[in-house]
Each structure stands twice: as C-alpha cells, then as structure tokens.
Simulated scan of single mutants.
Amino acid sequence: MSAIRKKWKEYSGPYLMILPCVVLLALFSIYPLAWAFKYMFYDFDGFTEATFIGFDNFVRLFTRDAQFWNSVWNTLVYAGGKLIVTLPLSLILAVILNQKIFARNSLRAIFFMPTIISAAVISLVFYLMFNSYNGIINNTLISLGIIQQPIEWLGVKYSMLTAIIVAIWGAVGNYMVLFLAGLQGIPKDLYESASLDGATKIQQFFKITIPMLGPVMQIIVMLAIVNTLKGYESIMVLTAGGPASKTEVMYLYIYKLFFPVSEGEPVVQQYGYGAAAGFVAAMIVGAITCLYLYLSRKSNNEY
C-alpha cells in the first residue's frame, strides 16, 4: 500500500491537471464524432425515430446531390484563390518586418489584429463596405471616377472574389507571425557570410531564407490548406452561400443540412445525411492534405 500511495503522490498531480482537458475532449470531440459516425447510416431528422438505411445516404450523395459537389468545387476555388495570395504575401511581410525598420512591433501588431477579431464581425463590416449601393467601396470608386455604376460585389459575378478578398485580409497576419517565428530561427551568420561573398538580398532570400524555412513552411502550408478547406464562417455571414450557391462551400452546405434556414417552407433537419456529407468532406480534406504532404516530402527528398 505504501508503494501505491507513493506512486499516487508522484503521478496524481500531472494526471489531475490534464483530466479537465481529457473530459472536455471526450465530451466535445470524441462523442460528437462517434455520434456522427453512427447516424450517417440512418435517416434521422432529430425529432422522429432514426431509421437504419445502410449506405443510402452515401448513394444519394454520390449520385443525386449535384449541389454538394458544386460546393466541393466552390471550396477548391475559394481555397486556391485565398492560398495563392495569402501565403506569398504573408512571407513577404514577415521578411520585411523581420528587418530593423521603424515601428516594426507596431506594424506586426496591426497586421496581426484581424486574426483576433471574430470572423462574424469582420464579415459583417466587409458586407457593409461591399454593399452595392451604400457601401464605401462603390462610393469611393465612383467619386474617383473609376466606375460609373455601382458594382454588385456580392452578386453572382463577383461574390466569390469578394469572399476571397475578405479571407485574405483576415488570414495574412496569422501566417505572417508563423513565418516570423521561422525566420527568427535562421542563424544571422549565414546572411553575414553571404554578404561578404557578394550575395544580394534577392539571392540571400532564395538561397538561404527559402531553404532554411523549408520544414516550417511545410507545416504552415499544411495548416493553411486544412483551415481554408474547413472554413465557412466568413462566407456564411458575408453571402450565406449565395447568390445562386455561387459561394456555398462544403462545410457551409453541411451546416445548412443540420441547421436549415427557413424561406417560407417547412424546415427539415437532415442529421443523418449531414453526418454522411460531413464524413465525405473530411475524407476530401484529408486526401488533399495527404497529397500535399506526399508531394512536399518527395520534393524535399529530391533536393
């Protein structure tokens, strides 16, 4: 008994400290996943008794639900447009703000500020700014004589572009900070030696900064891919997936299956079908992430 008491005194502290995290993880992560995995094989609306239907939800998803696959395409367009601008811009800002320039810390805080603001608040502000008739964007462009008629930024033609612009604004500061952390881990001696050898700043960037940032950049890009493919909160507030489902991404479509919006018709939750769609969406995100990791590791091995 004395040995048990001794071990309890030795190990009880750490286990008791992580116990709340384990309980919260089980309640809000593991249990919902198990619940969704069960009901994706059921016809279940949350009110009536669930009916086991086997793989019918998946058959419907792959053969009769064109709207879901349209949302997958929209997700890829949205993610591609966001990442192709956000990551290079974040890296450039990180390199600039890693230098000894005036008000460096203040500029870092300014660029990081959008990250700590709620996505709903950001989207609401941009919704007012991009409003077709009362928005500051159109009013400014008209007053400068750049355009004659208001542009429907949230219309069919430009809604996806607007959503991407908002996403870029909200994400640049986050990845900038991550790149800064990686840059500060690069030894200064490498740059000093390169300068003595006559290397320009551009040559140092491509020959020292990029290679030394390789492992960190791989993680940052992976996180950016996953977060972008899963993101929908900003679009939900900005356009609600419209108009005509032009900006409806995967997880916004799944959200609407669980929490449908009433438009004069009876609201019907589709928990079982939503769980199946969520599982397929998770597999798509996982497949894209694994493909990226495979290609990036293969590229690193070649060098």
Score class of each variant (00 low, 15 high):
G241A: 13
G80V: 10
Y271R: 14
L76H: 03
S132M: 14
A79T: 13
R64H: 03
Y11V: 03
Y273R: 07
L213T: 07
D197R: 05
N139Y: 05
Y42R: 05
N134K: 11
K100L: 12
L229S: 05
M113Q: 08
V166K: 04
I142P: 00
E192C: 06
G173H: 01
V267G: 03
G145S: 04
S195R: 14
S296A: 09
K6W: 15
V59S: 11
L76R: 06
V95N: 06
A163L: 08
M17W: 13
T162K: 00
M283V: 15
Y292I: 01
I18M: 09
G264N: 00
G13W: 15
P260D: 02
Y294T: 08
K246E: 12
L144V: 02
G242W: 11
I284V: 01
N139A: 13
N57H: 06
V267A: 02
M17Y: 12
I219D: 07
Y255L: 08
A79E: 10
V95K: 03
T75H: 07
D65E: 11
G182Q: 03
A199I: 01
I92F: 12
L128I: 14
G80P: 10
K100R: 13
F258R: 05
L252I: 06
M1E: 12
S195V: 13
L252C: 07
I30H: 13
I165R: 06
A50P: 04
Y294P: 05
Y292T: 00
L25E: 13
T115G: 07
A194T: 01
A94N: 07
V280F: 08
A276G: 11
E49H: 09
K298G: 04
C21I: 13
L25H: 11
P88D: 04
A3W: 12
K230D: 05
Y78W: 01
I288D: 02
N70F: 14
T75I: 06
I4A: 14
Q149Y: 11
Q149D: 09
V285Q: 02
Y15A: 13
N74S: 11
V226R: 00
Y253A: 02
S106E: 15
T200V: 13
I110D: 06
Y133M: 13
W69N: 02
W35C: 09
G264T: 03
S12A: 11
A194P: 01
G272M: 05
V177L: 04
L196P: 04
I288P: 03
F62E: 05
I168G: 00
K207G: 06
V261C: 10
G46V: 10
L25Y: 15
